[in-house]
Design a protein around this nucleic acid. Sequence first.
DNA 1: CTTACTATG
DNA 2: CATACTAAG
Lengths: 256, 256
Amino acid sequence: MLKISSLNLNGIRAAHRRGFKDWIAQSNPDIICLQELRAMEHQVPGPIQSLNYHAFYHTAEKKGYSGVGILSREEPISVQDGIGVDWIDQEGRVIMAEYTDLTVFSIYAPSGTTGDARQELKMEFLDVFLPFAHQHLEGDKPVVFCGDFNICHRPIDIHNPKRNKNTSGFLPEERKWVSLLLDTGFEDVYRRLHEGEPDLYSWWSYRAASKERNKGWRIDYHMTSPELLDAAEEAVIEKDWDLSDHAPVTISYNLG
Amino acid sequence: MLKISSLNLNGIRAAHRRGFKDWIAQSNPDIICLQELRAMEHQVPGPIQSLNYHAFYHTAEKKGYSGVGILSREEPISVQDGIGVDWIDQEGRVIMAEYTDLTVFSIYAPSGTTGDARQELKMEFLDVFLPFAHQHLEGDKPVVFCGDFNICHRPIDIHNPKRNKNTSGFLPEERKWVSLLLDTGFEDVYRRLHEGEPDLYSWWSYRAASKERNKGWRIDYHMTSPELLDAAEEAVIEKDWDLSDHAPVTISYNLG
DNA sequence: CTTACTATG
DNA sequence: CATACTAAG
């Protein structure tokens, strides 16, 4: 069994203070895909650097901003940073680690909540991401894109679909993009293992006690090639941990 | 009896969180001279605005920076902001309140610790302050200049005089300036009521647990006209309160 | 609301 | 070390 977690940390230093190491010790994933490090590599807390994981980071040029990483028990065959578009790669939003049996990505799509300019860049990211993802889907290894896509797919994935129908993250064009991804070969494994189950979210605003009232959004995904859906045995959102405003999305795959 | 307190708040919002109102309720000064508000007037916490004091503030133009104020039970006859020099008045460092029986100033001298440019401006402030103070000393009312002068006068006023002999705040030219002030008619009332007593400080760095080890500096003063020295009955530094990195310097005057 | 950053002390 | 600010989410 291969246990893979995806977690937006909202600052790896803050997450460390909130018990990131305890969560790792208890959940013990084989691979952890991280988003929003909000730190340079040298700023990663020592205790995290000392963990018994191989660690790879692709950080933003801007201090305290964005950044993705992959931690794994097994040493990857190769690691690759970025997606090949300058502005995206300067923001540290894509990292890949290739292993013997599968290829893993940690993805952090831009947020569009701060204005039109960023929303346009978010759509540009999605446009660039789609062929990039398909290119890797057509490789001969199983592939999983873990991460914070900053999009809720369907009404069931958000606590208040009506109120948010014009909100970045739940816009029709964003939701269609997820549908397109799923219609062209990818599987939203967490949802496939929890079809029709409401109130399952991976992010809650820090404002207005959203988490305790479970007023959340499901915006963190494992988007996989079909064989990984077949391999998936258990998918959980570990919302009992308060490591950041997101919860770890953890899936156990039986790769036979 | 007239009880006057001087307190550098290091942010009136932070001081409010740390119990500023409780201190007022317990110490109950008639007049409170405040320094380092670090807030615009509209940012002063509501509970402080609701106190049974007349309140006057002279804030800096720069947000979150400097600013002085005077609170008093009695309504002043007049209030005046500033000292008449643009850069000083833009930094909110001087406010005066005139009462029937005396005139009170709240003074916040610049710090020179951030570099040569600021040290030069500190000396310029002191140069401007001296004639300003004497002009008011020669009025017909008792006068008190309360505040953070950012200078330790003598070795007894600092925990480590040798180590700090080249440190801004204990430089020879700064110490001489205080001596000049005292040689030309002003009284350092707190010291006059505690002659020769060591280890009496009004500020402790937040670093290195300075306060619990009493590694402090006495940089907050009541500088008064001679009749107020005669009137002073009790002078205390209220160091049991942790309202900021400074302690209130509180003196009770018997104005007969 | 929370995490970063930066300036100031 | 602590308090503000700002940008970002």
